[in-house]
């Protein structure tokens, strides 16, 4: 029996229903598969059937989009219970969430909404992360989001905010290099300057994804993190340059959520990432 409760290194892809059968038949060489746990918080049916089969062949990473770690009203107990149940049944190698909020006023906004990086937000995030980690009895990874606004009352940089969270809660980081590129571009910042200040010592997973560019106002453009295309050259370049900053070879995920392509397209992207990864840690 393979040891599936940890991922030492290598590349994975997001697990999509359109690829369930093909993955089981071909069993491509991947270090792990990643799911959004919210899609599996159901009573039964085909998704849970396939997850159960597939998890015996690949380590699973659970990448949540609904915990709303930044909600001023705290995390939702019911949602946390559901995640805890799924984690117990599935034994994922990694559990991650986002530095964002999505729940408030009784509504769930189905998006990763931005937070002001203030001392107040920091205290709130610490409390919510502690609650999640205590319930799950494990550390979670927190991902830097793609953002389209910054707040005038920001007191800390995103990197300093993340570092403090790690120091004070024991959480680790999921570094999304596409999000770094998208956010810094949207806020007229230099992604290399951002990454130079990033606390790589806490990184335990990397995400790579595609995004789109749209006009904003006047001649300005905005990058939107839609996970619906191949990874762009700029993001590959940043990955090559900064991956060696990680303390060791860590898992790298190819994310593609919108209109997923043929499995082979994802496997090709994973191959490209693998080459960079191997060159970095020879």
């Amino acid at each position: 029996m393979k040891q599936l409760s940890s991922i030492h290194t290598g590349c994975g892809i997001g697990l999509k229903p359109c690829h369930y059968e093909e993955i089981l038949q071909r069993k491509p060489e991947l270090s792990f598969l990643e799911i959004h746990p919210e899609n599996y918080m159901v009573e039964g049916g085909l998704q849970l059937y396939y997850l159960e089969k597939i998890r015996h062949h690949y380590p699973i990473s659970m990448h949540g989009v609904g915990m709303s770690l930044g909600s001023a009203q705290g995390v939702d107990d019911q949602h946390l219970d559901k995640l805890c149940h799924l984690v117990k049944n599935t034994s994922p190698a990694l559990v991650s969430e986002h530095l964002s909020w999505s729940h408030g006023q009784g509504a769930y906004f189905n998006d990763l909404l931005p937070l002001p990086y203030t001392e107040e937000s920091l205290q709130l995030l610490k409390s919510n992360i502690h609650k999640v980690q205590d319930k799950l009895q494990r550390n979670i990874l927190v991902e830097n989001p793609s953002t389209y606004i910054t707040f005038a009352n920001d007191e800390l940089s995103e990197q300093a905010f993340l570092r403090t969270l790690c120091e004070q809660t024991g959480c680790k980081l999921l570094l999304d290099i596409n999000n770094v590129f998208v956010s810094t571009s949207n806020h007229q910042q230099d992604p290399r300057a951002y990454l130079a200040q990033y606390p790589f010592e806490y990184v335990e997973e990397i995400h790579l994804a595609g995004h789109s560019v749209y006009p904003l106002v006047d001649t300005k453009t905005i990058r939107i993190d839609d996970h619906g295309s191949e990874i762009c050259d700029d993001v590959w370049q940043l990955f090559s340059e900064f991956f060696p900053n990680c303390k060791t070879a860590i898992p790298v995920l190819i994310e593609w959520d919108t209109n997923p392509p043929e499995l082979d397209v994802l496997l090709q992207q994973a191959e490209t990432a693998k080459k960079i990864l191997h060159n970095s840690f020879r």
Binding site: F109, Y148, I149, A152, V217, I222
Partner: peptide, 20 residues
Amino acid sequence: LLQHYSQEEAAARIAIYKNN
């Protein structure tokens, strides 16, 4: 809270979240 943008640009940026 987004006074570092022009009103037009801030509204366009918020519209992305609304649209999502």
